[in-house]
Design a binder for these strands. Structure first.
Lengths: 340, 340
DNA sequence: TTGTACGCGTTATCAC
DNA sequence: GTGATAACGCGTACAA
């Protein structure tokens, strides 16, 4: 296979200058119709394709954006990326993805690498908590736009797109109360992360508003997996006065709990109601489908992409910063459907 | 924020040449220890970072590879990408992803774009069938390595990593026969695509080998979703002699069928056995967990990445081409577990 | 050991 | 309208 054709090749062919070729190709008005056609003809003839790398070096815009997530094969993140790609591809951007594996040092390296790659922006769901966000300080202050999604860090003047986790927690708990549940337990995942704290807060506020007592022994902190959920359920069901419902910040943890409750022959939803968070695909496929709070991940991705575009388009004029909060949507299914 | 520092900036600072700086930074042996240290010191002082774009233009290697899939948020594809990224990131490559939405023209455009971006390789699960693969002919013949995964197109001298779909279909069917099933239906997805044909072939051969008749009315072609599966089940259960098992090429279609069978109060696995394909996450979470053929997607991604690396490393010497076929793994669960 | 000069492929700014 | 030249940031043959 021969080398790729450049504008010089087509210039030589036509005995004109590369500059002229460039102008013709870019539909510069100051060019004769004749040469334009001639150039375009030979361009297709030689199968010329613009080298985006050279353009990027020249213009300082790579038309690449970096997307950084813990693991790309978690359905939530892959759906966000889907939204980002859907939105950005038509605008000529390419999406570079990188996984942190929830490792903070790796995240740091990835960010540096992406910046060296001259990405035009970075969309990230960070592994850092707000306590240690200062380690990213010098990166965020560079010229490249940062947009945080889902897992946000509070930097002044930095945009973010997050879910209204507080409202999600509140709605879920309120719904359980409306179903007649009086002793609602909560599965909490990571006290460090803002979004889990907010769901927890929503839970507490909903209890308070309804005059139900908040009982610390009804709150279990656990990892987001089935086994941990099973153990957590075991713990709360051993209490002198076991709960009659769970609002869980993790669908997987909740699944483990449901499995354990089934073994105890506890009837869901008749004697026990549960609501999860994330709306993982499996929740709707179970015989006793599980209510859960949907995070609209694709929408979140699209929104993050739009915020990025706004920011990049207004670069010269004003530095804009937006903090979008998307609504959480409670999806009621059989697991909490006493009334219907 | 100030502009990014270049080697010129640090050269000026030290009153030496950019060339010397470059050499010092790249640990060129022909450089005095003193200047090396000096350069490195001022480099960190000025917060210098190599501009990968310039390097890419210079070297002709962008250290980016393109990964092309139908939809990135399908668990199979996101898992493959996870494998690819895990393998390639440590080698200094970045992964650019693009979604075809199963649209062939879009796929074509994406490939051209990626090539213009000067990616060092393309890993793709194509939307094209072998009948129309000639439309990609001129792309594949370029210098950039192509590697097909899962959905393969048969080009001479082009590498691929695929699943042994035939074996998967064979094993699944054989397993059902061993469970005592005598009238095994098959859910076929897309007759055009090689991989579905292969699963179908495995099904037929397993029947034949066991002396069971192949009955065309037991084969239903359907889309890969729940509703279609439900309809397909309706169709086969209306037959004069309904089947007593299904081997489905799609887990989602099978789920629809299982739901319908539940409504008919058909007992699974006692009176009816089912095996799916893909090992979708939900299959293991159902009360009656569903047997399915696992495709080891992460492994497939890693393998594809390795094949790419081999190819790129031996570029100068011999053009190597590998066609790796990964084993399909039948996972037996309750839905076909009569015997245990 | 270091400096000089050039090229990677484009586009932009001058001239003419 | 078109040509000549410089510049983006880097690495490297060649010369010194």
């Amino acid at each position: 296979m021969s080398k790729k054709a450049t504008i010089y090749d087509i210039a030589k062919e036509l005995k004109i200058t590369a500059a002229t070729v460039s102008r013709a190709l870019n539909n510069n008005p100051k060019i004769s119709e004749k040469t334009r056609e001639l150039v375009q003809a030979t361009a297709t003839k030689l199968n010329y394709k613009q080298n985006k790398l050279a353009l990027a070096l020249k213009s300082g815009k790579s038309k690449n954006i970096g997307v950084v997530v813990p693991y790309i094969n978690r359905i939530f993140f892959s759906s966000v990326i889907r939204g980002i790609e859907d939105e950005l591809y038509p605008k000529g951007y390419h999406v570079i993805i990188a996984q942190t594996h929830d490792n903070k040092e790796k995240e740091l390296k990835i960010l540096q690498n992406l910046l060296n790659e001259q990405v035009d922006g970075i969309l990230i769901s960070s592994s850092y908590s707000n306590n240690e966000k200062h380690k990213l300080d010098y990166l965020v202050k560079k010229n490249t736009p940062f947009i945080f999604f889902d897992r946000k860090l509070n930097f002044p003047n930095i945009s973010s797109v997050t879910l209204n986790d507080y409202q999600g927690g509140y709605d879920a708990t309120k719904h359980l109360i409306e179903q007649g549940c009086m002793r609602i337990a909560h599965f909490l995942v990571d006290q460090e992360l803002e979004l889990y704290k907010n769901r927890f807060k929503g839970y507490k506020d909903a209890l308070e508003k309804s005059g139900l007592p908040f009982l610390p022994e009804y709150v279990v902190t656990l990892k987001s997996d089935i086994e941990a959920g099973r153990e957590a359920a075991k713990t709360i069901m051993k209490l002198p006065l076991p709960p009659d419902a769970i609002f869980s910040s993790t669908d997987y943890g909740l699944l483990g709990a449901v499995q354990y409750l089934n073994e105890l022959s506890v009837k869901i939803p008749d004697d026990f109601c549960v609501v999860g968070f994330s709306n993982a695909p499996f929740t709707q496929f179970l015989e006793t489908s599980i209510s859960s709070v949907d995070q609209s991940p694709v929408e979140m991705g699209k929104t993050a992409a739009k915020v990025f575009l706004e920011q990049i388009e207004n670069e010269q004029t004003v530095k804009i910063c937006k903090n979008v909060v998307l609504p959480a949507k409670l999806i009621v299914r059989k697991s909490s459907g006493k009334i219907n």
